[in-house]
């Protein structure tokens, strides 16, 4: 009797959960579906969920009419480039703070976090002018620099919380065996911390891929990543829903897949370890 009851509650909860999550996911699903419709079907007053002639022509159109792959490549270079560069700078710092703690370590961490809170508009004009004067406007190099800097505090923090979980004895043992600091990091720390480092990399690739303040302001045609490319579709309405959907799908699907792998790290990284 009780068992029957609990199955009933489970059924009700399951139904509610699937309905709500379906509604939340719907705009994405709708975009994916619309990307396979013709433009006429895309704006039809009685839209169909599955019963239409599926077509790939929107994808062909988007690829033919715009340098989609240039923007895709820019997104890849900017997000992966800045994440790797960030790791190279952040790993030594995180090692130092996690294993050679001083009285000032905590303050230093807090200060790094505080740089993340500087609103971008506070430095908008100087960055814009400096970029103009150094010829960095609309270049991938410029954006890699900016992305590295805005994500560096998150990287140091995430790596720090992962490194803290590694017992100091492991590293001391290596030191006793006469390993230099470089060898210690390279051969002992990195292999143990590899999952943590990989998650840090993943989360930062996602954050940089989706960043939409600096990428919109500092790029034009050449270095524009997908965020800026999609923004160019904001021009007045017309018969372009299907193409907009195809372009959107190509911009979000790669990162959606990466994102689903990094759920747990997301909580940890974005809450700066406040919630684990």
């Amino acid at each position: 009797m009780a068992n029957n009851n609990s199955i009933k509650t489970k059924l009700i909860y399951t139904f509610i959960a699937w309905t709500i999550s379906g509604l939340i996911f719907f705009p994405i699903l709708w975009t994916l579906i619309t990307s396979f419709k013709t433009e006429a079907e895309a704006i039809s007053a009685s839209p169909s969920l599955f019963m239409f002639d599926w077509t790939l022509e929107n994808y062909e159109d988007v690829l033919a009419r715009s340098p989609y792959f240039n923007h895709f490549w820019n997104s890849i270079v900017i997000s992966i480039g800045s994440s790797i560069l960030g790791l190279l700078i952040a790993i030594p710092a995180a090692w130092s703070m996690a294993f050679v703690q001083t009285k000032r370590t905590k303050n230093l961490l807090m200060w790094m976090l505080s740089t993340k809170m500087l609103p971008p508009v506070g430095v908008l004009i100087p960055i814009y002018l400096l970029f103009r004067d150094f010829g960095l406007l609309d270049t991938k190099v410029g954006l890699v620099i900016v992305m590295t800097l805005i994500n560096l505090p998150i990287m140091v923090w995430m790596l720090y919380t992962y490194f803290r979980e590694i017992p100091n004895e492991v590293l001391e043992a290596a030191r006793m065996d006469g390993a230099s600091i470089g060898e210690e990091i390279l051969y002992v720390l990195l292999p143990i911390a590899l999952p943590g480092i990989a998650s840090t990399l993943l989360l930062n690739v996602i954050l940089a891929w989706n960043e939409a303040f600096w990428t919109l302001i500092l790029t034009a045609a050449n270095a524009a990543p997908l965020t800026a490319f999609i923004a160019s579709y904001s021009s007045p309405e017309g018969l372009f829903y299907a193409k907009l959907s195809a372009a959107s799908a190509m911009a979000i699907v790669p990162i959606l897949i990466l994102g689903w792998f990094s759920q747990k790290q997301l909580v940890r990284g974005l809450s700066f370890g406040a919630v684990k």
Partner: peptide, 14 residues
Amino acid sequence: LAPFFVMPTVSALV
């Protein structure tokens, strides 16, 4: 979780 990974320009336009 999915909407969090959609870039702001895409979600706004959609």
